[in-house]
Simulated scan of single mutants.
Amino acid sequence: MSTFRPGAPLVRLAVLTVTAALLVVMGFVAGAVWQGRGPDSPSMSVSDIGFAQDMSTHHDQAILMSRTIGALPGVSPPVRGLADRIVYTQTAETATMRGWLQFFDQPMTPADPMSWMPDGDTHGDSHRGGGPDEADPPMPGMASVDEIGRLSSLPPAEAEILFLQLMIRHHRGGMEMAQAAYNDARTRSTTKDLALMMIGDQGDEIGQMTMLLNERGAEPLPT
Protein backbone atom coordinates (compact mmCIF):
# COMPACT_ATOMS: atom_id res chain seq x y z
CA MET A 1 0.00 0.00 0.00
CA SER A 2 2.77 2.41 0.94
CA THR A 3 5.92 3.28 -0.96
CA PHE A 4 7.55 4.60 2.22
CA ARG A 5 11.28 3.80 2.18
CA PRO A 6 13.82 3.80 4.99
CA GLY A 7 16.38 6.55 5.33
CA ALA A 8 18.73 7.79 8.00
CA PRO A 9 17.37 6.88 11.47
CA LEU A 10 16.81 10.48 12.61
CA VAL A 11 15.13 11.43 9.33
CA ARG A 12 12.86 8.36 9.52
CA LEU A 13 11.94 9.18 13.12
CA ALA A 14 11.14 12.81 12.28
CA VAL A 15 9.03 11.87 9.26
CA LEU A 16 7.07 9.22 11.15
CA THR A 17 6.50 11.52 14.15
CA VAL A 18 5.16 14.39 12.03
CA THR A 19 3.06 11.99 9.96
CA ALA A 20 1.57 10.43 13.09
CA ALA A 21 0.56 13.84 14.43
CA LEU A 22 -1.14 14.75 11.17
CA LEU A 23 -2.94 11.42 11.05
CA VAL A 24 -4.44 11.93 14.51
CA VAL A 25 -6.13 15.06 13.19
CA MET A 26 -7.18 13.24 10.02
CA GLY A 27 -8.59 10.42 12.11
CA PHE A 28 -10.96 12.78 13.92
CA VAL A 29 -12.07 14.16 10.57
CA ALA A 30 -12.72 10.55 9.48
CA GLY A 31 -15.31 10.29 12.21
CA ALA A 32 -17.21 13.21 10.73
CA VAL A 33 -16.96 11.65 7.27
CA TRP A 34 -18.51 8.46 8.71
CA GLN A 35 -21.86 10.23 9.03
CA GLY A 36 -21.80 11.08 5.35
CA ARG A 37 -21.44 7.47 4.23
CA GLY A 38 -25.18 6.88 4.03
CA PRO A 39 -28.18 5.85 6.14
CA ASP A 40 -26.67 2.47 7.04
CA SER A 41 -23.88 4.04 9.10
CA PRO A 42 -25.19 6.91 11.26
CA SER A 43 -23.25 5.70 14.30
CA MET A 44 -20.91 2.98 15.50
CA SER A 45 -22.31 -0.45 16.37
CA VAL A 46 -21.00 -2.69 19.14
CA SER A 47 -18.73 -4.51 16.68
CA ASP A 48 -17.50 -1.23 15.16
CA ILE A 49 -16.54 0.09 18.58
CA GLY A 50 -14.97 -3.16 19.78
CA PHE A 51 -13.01 -3.65 16.59
CA ALA A 52 -11.71 -0.06 16.61
CA GLN A 53 -10.66 -0.32 20.26
CA ASP A 54 -9.04 -3.75 20.06
CA MET A 55 -7.42 -3.38 16.66
CA SER A 56 -5.91 -0.05 17.72
CA THR A 57 -4.31 -1.80 20.70
CA HIS A 58 -3.21 -4.67 18.45
CA HIS A 59 -1.65 -2.19 16.03
CA ASP A 60 0.14 -0.43 18.90
CA GLN A 61 2.18 -3.57 19.53
CA ALA A 62 3.01 -4.03 15.84
CA ILE A 63 4.22 -0.43 15.73
CA LEU A 64 6.30 -0.99 18.88
CA MET A 65 7.97 -4.10 17.46
CA SER A 66 8.60 -2.38 14.13
CA ARG A 67 10.13 0.66 15.78
CA THR A 68 12.27 -1.62 17.94
CA ILE A 69 13.76 -3.52 15.00
CA GLY A 70 14.10 -0.32 12.98
CA ALA A 71 16.19 1.30 15.73
CA LEU A 72 18.75 -1.52 15.84
CA PRO A 73 22.02 -0.83 14.00
CA GLY A 74 22.99 -3.34 11.35
CA VAL A 75 19.47 -4.40 10.38
CA SER A 76 19.20 -5.20 6.66
CA PRO A 77 17.46 -2.69 4.35
CA PRO A 78 14.63 -5.11 3.37
CA VAL A 79 13.67 -5.77 7.00
CA ARG A 80 14.06 -2.11 7.98
CA GLY A 81 11.94 -1.08 5.00
CA LEU A 82 9.23 -3.57 5.95
CA ALA A 83 9.27 -2.30 9.53
CA ASP A 84 8.93 1.30 8.34
CA ARG A 85 6.02 0.34 6.13
CA ILE A 86 4.23 -1.33 9.05
CA VAL A 87 4.78 1.74 11.26
CA TYR A 88 3.49 4.07 8.57
CA THR A 89 0.47 1.99 7.55
CA GLN A 90 -0.66 0.93 11.00
CA THR A 91 -0.17 4.41 12.46
CA ALA A 92 -2.55 5.69 9.79
CA GLU A 93 -5.10 2.96 10.49
CA THR A 94 -4.87 3.47 14.25
CA ALA A 95 -5.35 7.22 13.89
CA THR A 96 -8.44 6.59 11.76
CA MET A 97 -10.00 4.15 14.23
CA ARG A 98 -9.25 6.33 17.25
CA GLY A 99 -10.60 9.29 15.33
CA TRP A 100 -13.90 7.43 14.95
CA LEU A 101 -13.97 6.63 18.66
CA GLN A 102 -13.17 10.21 19.61
CA PHE A 103 -15.80 11.62 17.27
CA PHE A 104 -18.51 9.35 18.67
CA ASP A 105 -17.34 9.90 22.27
CA GLN A 106 -16.36 6.28 22.85
CA PRO A 107 -13.54 5.04 25.12
CA MET A 108 -10.19 4.45 23.46
CA THR A 109 -9.84 1.09 25.22
CA PRO A 110 -12.50 -1.51 26.07
CA ALA A 111 -13.53 -2.65 29.53
CA ASP A 112 -13.61 -6.23 28.22
CA PRO A 113 -11.19 -6.77 25.31
CA MET A 114 -12.46 -8.89 22.42
CA SER A 115 -15.96 -9.23 23.87
CA TRP A 116 -17.39 -8.09 20.52
CA MET A 117 -16.11 -11.23 18.78
CA PRO A 118 -18.89 -13.71 17.90
CA ASP A 119 -19.28 -16.83 20.05
CA GLY A 120 -16.79 -15.51 22.60
CA ASP A 121 -13.88 -17.19 20.77
CA THR A 122 -11.47 -14.31 21.16
CA HIS A 123 -8.10 -15.92 20.63
CA GLY A 124 -7.76 -19.49 19.55
CA ASP A 125 -4.75 -21.66 20.30
CA SER A 126 -3.41 -21.25 16.78
CA HIS A 127 -2.70 -17.56 17.37
CA ARG A 128 -1.67 -17.41 21.00
CA GLY A 129 1.57 -15.61 21.72
CA GLY A 130 3.75 -15.61 24.77
CA GLY A 131 5.59 -18.40 26.48
CA PRO A 132 4.30 -21.41 28.38
CA ASP A 133 4.64 -19.64 31.73
CA GLU A 134 2.67 -16.58 30.72
CA ALA A 135 -1.06 -15.92 30.67
CA ASP A 136 -2.80 -16.02 27.33
CA PRO A 137 -2.47 -12.69 25.51
CA PRO A 138 -5.63 -10.58 25.34
CA MET A 139 -5.76 -10.66 21.53
CA PRO A 140 -4.75 -13.14 18.83
CA GLY A 141 -1.15 -13.10 17.69
CA MET A 142 0.20 -10.68 20.25
CA ALA A 143 3.76 -11.09 21.53
CA SER A 144 4.67 -11.39 25.19
CA VAL A 145 6.68 -8.83 27.13
CA ASP A 146 9.55 -11.33 27.18
CA GLU A 147 9.47 -11.75 23.39
CA ILE A 148 9.59 -8.00 22.82
CA GLY A 149 12.43 -7.72 25.33
CA ARG A 150 14.41 -10.37 23.45
CA LEU A 151 13.81 -8.51 20.19
CA SER A 152 15.67 -5.46 21.49
CA SER A 153 18.61 -7.41 22.92
CA LEU A 154 19.52 -9.90 20.17
CA PRO A 155 22.25 -9.37 17.55
CA PRO A 156 20.85 -7.89 14.31
CA ALA A 157 20.69 -11.14 12.32
CA GLU A 158 18.90 -13.00 15.13
CA ALA A 159 16.64 -10.02 15.85
CA GLU A 160 15.56 -9.94 12.19
CA ILE A 161 14.46 -13.58 12.36
CA LEU A 162 12.57 -13.09 15.63
CA PHE A 163 10.91 -9.93 14.31
CA LEU A 164 9.71 -11.69 11.18
CA GLN A 165 8.42 -14.67 13.19
CA LEU A 166 6.60 -12.50 15.72
CA MET A 167 5.14 -10.23 13.06
CA ILE A 168 3.86 -13.09 10.92
CA ARG A 169 2.04 -14.47 13.96
CA HIS A 170 0.85 -10.96 14.85
CA HIS A 171 -0.48 -10.33 11.34
CA ARG A 172 -2.30 -13.67 11.30
CA GLY A 173 -4.03 -12.69 14.52
CA GLY A 174 -4.89 -9.28 13.12
CA MET A 175 -6.35 -10.84 9.99
CA GLU A 176 -8.48 -13.12 12.18
CA MET A 177 -9.87 -10.06 13.97
CA ALA A 178 -10.44 -8.16 10.73
CA GLN A 179 -12.21 -11.14 9.16
CA ALA A 180 -14.47 -11.47 12.20
CA ALA A 181 -15.40 -7.78 11.96
CA TYR A 182 -16.01 -8.04 8.23
CA ASN A 183 -18.27 -11.08 8.64
CA ASP A 184 -20.23 -9.62 11.57
CA ALA A 185 -23.73 -8.54 10.53
CA ARG A 186 -23.60 -5.67 13.02
CA THR A 187 -20.54 -4.09 11.41
CA ARG A 188 -21.13 -0.91 9.40
CA SER A 189 -19.78 -0.52 5.89
CA THR A 190 -17.12 1.98 6.96
CA THR A 191 -15.51 -0.55 9.30
CA LYS A 192 -15.91 -3.36 6.77
CA ASP A 193 -13.98 -1.33 4.19
CA LEU A 194 -11.10 -0.78 6.59
CA ALA A 195 -11.10 -4.41 7.75
CA LEU A 196 -10.97 -5.65 4.16
CA MET A 197 -8.05 -3.36 3.39
CA MET A 198 -6.20 -4.70 6.46
CA ILE A 199 -6.75 -8.28 5.35
CA GLY A 200 -5.24 -7.55 1.94
CA ASP A 201 -2.29 -5.52 3.20
CA GLN A 202 -1.36 -7.87 6.02
CA GLY A 203 -1.74 -10.92 3.78
CA ASP A 204 0.71 -9.35 1.32
CA GLU A 205 3.15 -8.57 4.13
CA ILE A 206 2.95 -12.14 5.47
CA GLY A 207 4.04 -13.35 2.03
CA GLN A 208 6.96 -10.92 2.02
CA MET A 209 7.99 -11.84 5.58
CA THR A 210 7.80 -15.56 4.85
CA MET A 211 10.13 -15.05 1.89
CA LEU A 212 12.57 -13.08 4.07
CA LEU A 213 12.50 -15.85 6.67
CA ASN A 214 13.21 -18.48 4.03
CA GLU A 215 16.20 -16.47 2.84
CA ARG A 216 17.52 -16.62 6.40
CA GLY A 217 16.98 -20.38 6.74
CA ALA A 218 14.21 -19.93 9.31
CA GLU A 219 10.53 -20.87 9.53
CA PRO A 220 7.47 -19.12 11.01
CA LEU A 221 6.58 -19.93 14.59
CA PRO A 222 4.46 -23.10 14.98
CA THR A 223 0.70 -22.60 15.03
Rank of each mutant, 00 (worst) to 15 (best):
R85N: 14
S144C: 06
M139S: 02
N183I: 02
E93C: 09
G131Y: 05
A95I: 12
P138N: 01
D184W: 04
D184P: 03
G81W: 04
P118C: 14
N183M: 11
R186H: 09
D84C: 12
P107Q: 08
G141P: 08
S153P: 03
W100H: 13
T109V: 14
A92T: 06
I148W: 06
M139W: 06
A92L: 15
E160V: 10
A111M: 04
M117F: 09
W116G: 07
L82P: 01
L151T: 05
F104G: 02
G81A: 10
R85P: 01
P118N: 12
I168R: 06
Y88H: 15
T190K: 02
A83E: 05
I161C: 10
Q179L: 12
H127L: 12
M117D: 01
R172H: 15
F163E: 00
F163G: 01
D184K: 01
E176L: 11
L162H: 10
S115W: 03
Q165V: 07
A92V: 04
I148Q: 13
S152F: 07
V79A: 05
S126Q: 14
G130Y: 11
G99C: 12
S115T: 10
I86K: 06
G131D: 04
D133Q: 11
G99P: 11
E134T: 04
A111R: 10
R128I: 15
Y88T: 12
D105W: 05
Q165H: 06
G129V: 03
M167S: 02
D112G: 03
R150D: 15
E93Y: 04
P138Q: 05
V79S: 00
H127Q: 06
F103Q: 10
A92M: 13
A83T: 03
P155D: 03
A143K: 00
G124I: 09
G81L: 07
E147K: 02
G141T: 12
L151M: 11
A111W: 04
M142R: 00
A178C: 08
E160H: 11
H171G: 04
G99K: 12
G81E: 11
G81K: 04
Q106F: 01
R172P: 03
F163S: 03
N183V: 01
V145R: 13
E134P: 00
R169E: 00
L151S: 10
G124S: 13
T190E: 12
M167Y: 06
D133C: 11
E158H: 10
P156A: 02
V87L: 07
P156S: 05
Q179R: 14
M142K: 02
Q102S: 15
R150F: 05
G131S: 03
S153G: 10
G141Y: 04
S126F: 03
A157K: 14
Q90I: 08
G129I: 02
I161T: 15
P113C: 09
M97Y: 08
S189P: 02
